[in-house]
Structures are given as structure tokens and as C-alpha cells.
Design a protein around this nucleic acid. Structure first.
Lengths: 206, 206
DNA sequence: GGTTGTCAGGTGGCCTAGCCACTGACTATC
DNA sequence: GATAGTCAGTGGCTAGGCCACCTGACAACC
């Protein structure tokens, strides 16, 4: 099948919804008027009339602006322009983590570790056995941890772990760590969620 | 102006809009039904009728889910579940949390809770006694939790808790929760970090 | 004078009802 | 077989309305 004429193919023309253009328009309006944090936008009824749209559509545009952090809509009060937070806008993982001392990141990751271990202990029994059987188990943090992560799936905790791992390295290969890893693996293997979580506590911070 | 009674000051009680709860509800529904990328949600009219809300409100909930990247709404087609991909750009707290089903947020917050409880148990002994003495202790989740949070300080875990709390409410006031809260408070009071953390496990998810 | 209670006006939240625009599949037609 | 027309189902948007909420002013009370 020839698929090369993509160069001449028309793009699907991503139709923009009215309330989305409206949101952009209002955002421009905020800037043009020089409105700053705390200033109030005109009431919905008036704004809708001036813009020539229904109040429902305008309201959706405002809701969109709110989820983007540009304004704050309060029942009985109105739509308030929001001061762009530190580093302009919505906080990102990176910004938050970079601003914290590593000790805090370690504590946080430890908590995430415990949560993941707990989740892993609740995974399917045969899966746990296949991945963590005592024989052939490698006692490095990275290996054991990969197994636990695999068992725990890729939920929000996993995403957190990824983000945190970039700002705080795992432990080394000391005898104490090995002991902990064995205990962790055994607890997960047994399906003992509480024990698995407890084992993780203090694993990184010493 | 005296400003010290901040301890007794009530929180503004962030009211949740119907369409926001609805969005969370639908997100749960997607997960419960095991819908994956490309699957279609029921049409708006039917969904609205089943959920007992107006179509306008339901539509707003879907719009919210769309801006968060959980679904894609196409005119004339329907609402399609989106595969949770990297989805471009720097990940923000909001985007990451909103794109996840509430169950995952609960699990994550539980892990954070355990970490904070553990930290609180390591706080200064006199502080712990002052805040969590058995007499005069209020057994609501919010109150006990505020004390633990205060004891744990405002590190990265606290920031995480704030972010997560916005996307998954705490537990109610059942007898089982009260029992857990008592156990938690006692563990923190004793300075038993492991017990404090263990008590938190399963507190939110049941 | 300061405090407290009341109330009306303005605001957003949500609803009902409906029309319009878009999409996709089906069906004649050539 | 390919094409064009048709149609049912879908989301987009509008109009008008009621309700819950917040605020500020004002009156009543200490």
C-alpha cells in the first residue's frame, strides 16, 4: 500500500472548540488589561453577553482556565486572576524535587518504596514466586528493586519512584543492605504486605 | 494584631463541584470496567441519565477529564479512553494526579501517610506529648492527621500529601477508622516509627 | 463604640429543553 | 466495484431558569 502522499495529504484540521478559543481569548484579555493576582474578571453574564456566547460556554472556558491555574472561580464571588506561582505556573515534579535537600527526597522515596513493596506483596502468587524465588536471586538493590517494581505494576507510586530516583540514589551493596533485601524479598514472596513495607523503612537513610 | 490562634483556625473547606466529583467517578468507572486506550464511553445522554445529572454537567466532567489527558472527546463520535502515555511536556503534579484513577492516588497517599507517621514518631518527645496526649484528643481523621503533619514538619512528603489530598479525600468517621487513629496516635506518642507506619497501611483504601 | 444578627443583591452552580454540526455506516445508484 | 446520497447517533452550543453561596450594608443590641 502506497502511503507516501502524506506530504500532500490534508491534515485532519483539529477543530478547536469554541470554549477553548474563548479560554485563550480571555487569557489574552487578562494580560491586555494588565490584571494581576486577586483582580476580578467581569461576571459571567456580562462577559458572555460581551463575547456573544452563551453563559454555559463561557463558564466552560473559565473552568478550563481554572484547571490550567490561570484563574480561580469562587461560587458567589467571581473569577479571580491567580498570581502565577513560583517558577511561573503549575509546579512540576522536577522543580519541586530540585528545590528539596536530598535528605528529604530520601525520606520520601523510602515511603514510596514501602508502598510499592506493600503493593508487590499483594501481586499474583505465581508471579511473585517466579520473580523472587530464593535461588538465583541477585542481591543488589537494583535487581531486587526492579523485581518489586515489576510486581507492583506501573501506577502512580511507580511514577513517583521514577521521579524520586533521579534525585536520590539507591543504597550501595553493604552487608546490611543485603540483609534487608533478603528480608524484603522473603516478605514479598510470603505475601506479607506489612512486613514488606516495614523492611523498607530506613533502607535508604541508614 | 494577634495571629497566633492559627492552631484553632478552621480550614476554608474546599467545596468540590459536582462536575469534579463526577470526573473522578467516571475515572474510577473507566478503571473498574477495565477500559483501555481506544475504548468508548457510553454516550453523554445515557451516561447523564444513569448518573442522575444533567447532560451539561456531565459534559463538563468529560471536558475536565479530557484536559487532564484521561480521555479524548470527538464530535460526532464519542468519548474515547486515552492510553496514559508520556503525553508530551514536563509532567506537573496536577497532570500526573488527574490522569490517574482515584484508587492509585489513594494507594500513593497511604504510602505518604505512612512516611509522615514514621517521621512524626521521630519528632521531639515533648512536642509529641503536647499534641497527641490521649486526653483531649479528637478522633477525626482531619484532626489527628493535622497533628501528625505538624509533627512531621513540612518536607517533601508534606508537599506530596497536599498534592495527593486534593485528588483523594480522607476516610470518613467509621469506628474502624477511629480505632486506627487511636493506634496511630499511640504509636506516634510512643515514638514507635514502625508501628506508626504500619497503622497507616490500608487506612484509606479499606 | 463595638458587636451581632439580618437581609438583599450579585455571583457562580446546575438544570431542562432544544437545535445544530459532525461522523460513520448503510443504501441505492451508476 | 465504486460512487453519491441518506440517516441515525453523537457531541457542541444556546436559551432561560432556579438555587446555593458570598458579600456588604444596615439595624438592633450590648
Amino acid at each position: 500500500m502506497p502511503d507516501e502522499p502524506s506530504a500532500r495529504r490534508l491534515t485532519p484540521l483539529r477543530r478547536e472548540r469554541l470554549y477553548e478559543s474563548l479560554a485563550a481569548h480571555i487569557s489574552d484579555f487578562i494580560e491586555a488589561q494588565g490584571l494581576v493576582g486577586g483582580d476580578r474578571l467581569p461576571p459571567e453574564r456580562q462577559l458572555a453577553a460581551e463575547l456573544g456566547v452563551s453563559r454555559a460556554t463561557l463558564s466552560r472556558a473559565l473552568a478550563a482556565l481554572e484547571t490550567r491555574g490561570r484563574i480561580e472561580v469562587r461560587h458567589g464571588v467571581g473569577a479571580l486572576v491567580r498570581e502565577p506561582g513560583p517558577a511561573g505556573g503549575v509546579p512540576t515534579w522536577e522543580a519541586s524535587l530540585a528545590a528539596r535537600p536530598r535528605s528529604e527526597v530520601l525520606v520520601a522515596r523510602e515511603a514510596v518504596l514501602a508502598g510499592l513493596a506493600r503493593t508487590a506483596a499483594g501481586a499474583d502468587s505465581s508471579l511473585r514466586t517466579a520473580m523472587l524465588a530464593p535461588d538465583g536471586r541477585q542481591r543488589t538493590f537494583d535487581h531486587t528493586w526492579r523485581c518489586v517494581r515489576r510486581l507492583a505494576g506501573d501506577g502512580l507510586l511507580a511514577e513517583l519512584d521514577d521521579a524520586l530516583a533521579g534525585h536520590a540514589p539507591g543504597p550501595g551493596d553493604s552487608a546490611e543492605v543485603h540483609q534487608r533485601l533478603d528480608a524484603l524479598a522473603d516478605a514479598v514472596l510470603r505475601g506479607d504486605a506489612a512486613a514488606a513495607a516495614t523492611t523498607c523503612q530506613g533502607m535508604l537513610g541508614g
